[in-house]
Amino acid sequence: MSEHNTDTTTRSDTDEQSAEQRRSWTESSGSGTVNIQDLTKVYGDDGDELVAVDGMDLHIEAEEFVTVLGPSGCGKSTVMECIAGYLDPTEGEVLVNDEPVEGPDPSRGVVFQENRLFPWKTISENVRFGPQMRDDVDESRVASLFDQMGLSGFEDAYPHELSGGMQQRAELARLLANDPDIMLMDEPFSGLDAMTKELMQEKLLDVWEDDDRTVLFITHDVEEAILLADRVVVMTARPGQVKDVIDVDLERPRSTDIVTTDRFNELQRRASESIHDEAERAMEQAEGRV
């Protein structure tokens, strides 16, 4: 335990330095920072209040891959919805590129837990949706996305005709067609079988390493959180706050093979320990409410 703690201190020192460096770099290049300041979200009113998030602070650098790890019902989706612009914070602020978030925007793409390809549109219509809304479809870009995501030949299929993994890739393609600065992903792979999930994680890492994008990825899967992230943010049970930030100093580019390394296991143990108590508390909360 003590070993881990000293580890953290030293690492977070270096992290602050590198964050400083990155920050200055970001300002010149432009876009993709997310700044969550004292974010509080309360649902309901008059005696039936539910504090989902309570005074959360988090800074995400441009092009950083951050995973948020938390027990179910800890308000991690609420945080994402505030960044996406679906929810207004009760208190505090969410700044994207130093501007307060005002509603959804194509520069902040969202992938939901359940597949949300429009069932009434073909794969091609789904992938084109964003650019189509602005009458600005770049055919060569769409074609290369179909190629990259292995969707060629399925342009005219409806979503339900595709396998789960293909649906996920199509949803990712739909997001990328919009060329967002920030990708917000809410447990996108939790419905997939283990093998498909692994392939999707690698696909996502490829996509992220190719382009300059910030990713905020929500999950309750410890292994997934570490595999993907530059930093893992561990959240407390409700009301949600940042409990712990774990720097993932594994080399990139990564593949799923990395999960067998010692360093990975060490990080995984740390994250598991950090989240364990919170998961227990969350379960008690859930049982108390039902």
């Binding site: 649902y43 612009g85 679906y86 929810l87 207004d88 509603g103 959804p104």
Partner: peptide, 12 residues
């Protein structure tokens, strides 16, 4: 832009 989030809150 506020209406969707407003409705969500009202829905809750």
């Amino acid at each position: 832009t506020g209406s969707i989030s407003d409705r969500l809150v009202e829905g809750f």
